[in-house]
Amino acid sequence: MRMSTWIRQHLAALRALLVLTAITGIVYPLAVFAVGQLPGLNEKADGSLLTSEGNVVGSSLIGQSFTDADGAALTQYFQSRPSAAGDGYDPLSTAASNLGPEDMVDQNVFDPEGRASLLTTVCARSKEIGDREGVDGSRPFCTGDGVGAVLSVIGPRDADGEVSRPVQVISVNQACPAVPFLDAYRGVRVQCAEPDMDYSVGRIVPIQGDVPAVPVVPADAVTASGSGLDPHISPAYAEIQVPRIAKARNMSEEQVRELVTAHTEDRTLGFLGEARVNVVELNLDLDHTHPFSG
């Protein structure tokens, strides 16, 4: 009797398994696929692919790097925002750098195997963009040569952990014989960084500097997106690139701005996020309408 009950229970479980497998493993996927092939949906369901002369050249959902083999920006293209996904825009390695605002001290000042801090990375990108686009690339907490403006202030501390009387001040991201970005801090001469000194005993102090509170180079130009795949840039970043594109492609700046506007997407549902420019689609359109002659 017990054996008969055991068999009936297992047969019922097997039937449930087969039915659910058919529904969730066959019927449901086929239904979703069929809906995705409806007019108006099939293009998105297939990956929002972009084609040129019959060849797939990318997706409107995934950014691309418009640089040469050495990583230098190609002057004829709008530049995307940075990417931390693999070697850049790798869908198999989508990720952010996971570095935060307190990552200010470079590890590569004396160690070739170390990395630059997030602050110095941002400063270097801003300077490079400023030089390339002919705009002011300065930003708060950055030196003029594109590294993080950070001091290690050494001396006795008060109850709150503040250095009450500095006895030594080091520009930790500027290795000697570099000239420190600041002559003196609280009456103490600022020194360049020496390899045999321990700066961790000091209080790390970032210096804002005498620069515009709102940088000309926008934040999306110097920071990666959370996914590392974002194909968009802000209209502000697109705008500072317009003169370079116009000159490279022998266009008027107004013609370039018209194409930028055509590829600018408004806020989602009118209130989510910000307006954004799809760089991949914009550059593809530029190649179609105003080919670069070199």
Rank of each mutant, 00 (worst) to 15 (best):
R2S: 10
M3C: 07
W6L: 15
H10A: 15
A16H: 09
L17G: 11
A22S: 09
A22Y: 09
G25I: 12
P29I: 13
A31Q: 04
A31T: 05
V32S: 03
V35E: 13
L41Y: 05
D46L: 08
G47C: 08
L49I: 13
E53D: 06
V56W: 00
V57A: 02
S59W: 09
I62R: 04
L74D: 00
S80M: 01
R81P: 01
A85P: 06
D90R: 04
N98G: 09
D103P: 03
V105E: 13
D106F: 04
A116P: 07
A124N: 08
A124P: 04
K127V: 09
I129M: 00
R132Y: 02
S138G: 10
V147P: 09
G148E: 05
P156G: 15
D158I: 11
R165S: 10
V167W: 04
V167R: 09
I170W: 10
A175N: 14
A178G: 14
V179P: 03
V179W: 08
V179E: 05
A184Q: 05
R186I: 02
V190I: 07
Q191C: 06
M197I: 13
Y199K: 11
V201H: 14
R203V: 11
I207Y: 05
Q208H: 14
Q208K: 14
D210N: 07
V216E: 00
I233Q: 00
P235H: 11
A238K: 14
P243C: 08
K247M: 05
K247Y: 02
S252N: 14
Q255H: 06
R257W: 04
R257V: 01
L259V: 06
V260Y: 07
T264K: 13
D266N: 13
R267E: 14
T268P: 06
T268V: 11
N278P: 04
D285P: 03
L286W: 03
P291A: 07
F292C: 09
